[in-house]
Computed example of a mutant assay.
Amino acid sequence: MIRGASLRGFARVVEELDGDPGEFMGRFAIPWQALTSEEGLIPITSHDLMLDAVARELRCPDFGLRLACRQDLSILGRLALAIQASSTVADALECASRFLFVHSSALSVGVEPDPRGCREVVALTYRKDLRESPYSPQAMELGLGLFHQVAMALVGSLAGLRAVELPHQPLSPVSRYTNFFGVDVKFGCPTAALRVERRLLDEEFRSADAVIRRLAVDYLTSHHTDPERLVSTHVRRALAGSLGTTPAAIGHVARLLAMHPRTLQRRLAEESTSFETILEDVRQDLALRYITTTDLPLGQVAAMAGFADQSGLSHAVRRWWGASPSEVRRRVRGTS
Rank of each mutant, 00 (worst) to 15 (best):
Y126E: 13
E94N: 09
P113D: 13
V111C: 12
G77I: 06
P113E: 14
I75N: 00
D114W: 06
S104E: 04
T88R: 10
R127S: 13
G117L: 01
L124R: 10
L76T: 01
R127Q: 13
P113V: 11
F101H: 07
V109G: 04
R98H: 07
C118R: 12
L124A: 11
G77M: 06
E120F: 12
A82M: 04
H103F: 15
G77E: 04
A92V: 01
C118I: 10
I75C: 02
R127W: 08
V109I: 15
E112V: 04
V122K: 00
A123H: 08
C95P: 05
T88G: 03
E94P: 00
R78V: 03
Y126K: 11
R78D: 07
S87T: 04
A85R: 05
R119P: 09
T88Q: 06
V111I: 15
V89N: 01
L93I: 14
V111A: 09
P115A: 03
V102H: 08
S104V: 06
H103L: 09
P115D: 10
V89A: 03
I83W: 07
I83L: 09
A92S: 05
E94K: 08
F101N: 02
A123C: 09
F101Y: 15
R119T: 07
F101I: 07
S108N: 11
V111W: 14
L124F: 12
S74T: 15
V102I: 14
Y126V: 09
L124N: 11
A85F: 03
R98N: 06
R116D: 15
E112Y: 12
H103E: 13
T125F: 09
E112Q: 14
S74K: 09
E120M: 13
I75V: 14
L76H: 10
I75R: 01
D114T: 06
A106D: 14
Q84L: 11
G117Y: 00
S74Q: 09
F101S: 05
A96I: 01
A106S: 15
L81M: 03
T88A: 01
C95M: 12
S108E: 12
V122S: 02
A90S: 13
E112K: 11
A90L: 11
E112H: 13
L124S: 10
S97I: 00
E112G: 05
R119G: 14
S74R: 12
V89C: 02
F101T: 03
S108A: 15
R127V: 02
E120I: 12
